[in-house]
């Protein structure tokens, strides 16, 4: 197969980007996969879950996140723009006082943070919030 000069340059750039570029960021497919693994592809309601994240995070290495979904048995957090989309999953036991938790997470850059709650009846709820990050938190 013959290559035009333009194709050659394009390929070269793509290869260079693969070698020297930023760490590979999670693709939409990876987010989809993580969602499906948790929900089994079920529909998700948009109410009954609260995700509190800062609109602008100065330091992507520690972004405070708070999530609550009354009655939920498990809550999964996803960061759609991180090299690995999964963040953590809270499984609430019988002694839990509420289905709420706070933690601190890393964000590689401006992206959407997604929280999905699994209810005891098998339904799911989701909340999304966009977070802008001044300094990314994944090295690279």
């Amino acid at each position: 197969m013959t290559q035009t000069r333009r194709q050659f340059v394009g390929h070269g750039l793509a290869v260079a980007a693969a070698f020297f570029g930023l760490p590979h960021l999670a693709s939409a497919a990876q987010v989809e996969e993580a969602l499906n693994a948790f929900t089994g592809g079920a529909d998700m309601a948009d109410d009954g879950i609260t995700l509190i994240a800062p609109e602008i995070a100065e330091n992507g290495n520690t972004v405070p996140i708070e999530v609550s979904a009354p009655g939920a048995e498990a809550i999964m957090l996803l960061a759609a723009g991180n090299p690995q989309a999964d963040v953590c999953t809270f499984n609430f036991g019988p002694a839990a006082g509420s289905s709420a938790a706070s933690t601190r997470i890393r964000l590689a850059g401006e992206q959407e943070v997604i929280a999905i709650a699994r209810m005891p009846d098998g339904s799911f709820k989701q909340a999304r919030q966009n977070v802008r990050v001044t300094i990314g938190g994944c090295g690279g």
Binding site: V87, G93, A95, S102, R106
Partner: peptide, 22 residues
């Protein structure tokens, strides 16, 4: 009795902090 069981991935910050209710 279990209060909370958290699965953690690398996206959780250095010095992992968790707050929850019991």
């Amino acid at each position: 009795t279990s209060v909370v069981d958290v699965t953690i991935e690398p996206s959780v910050s250095t010095n992992p902090y968790f707050q929850f209710d019991a």
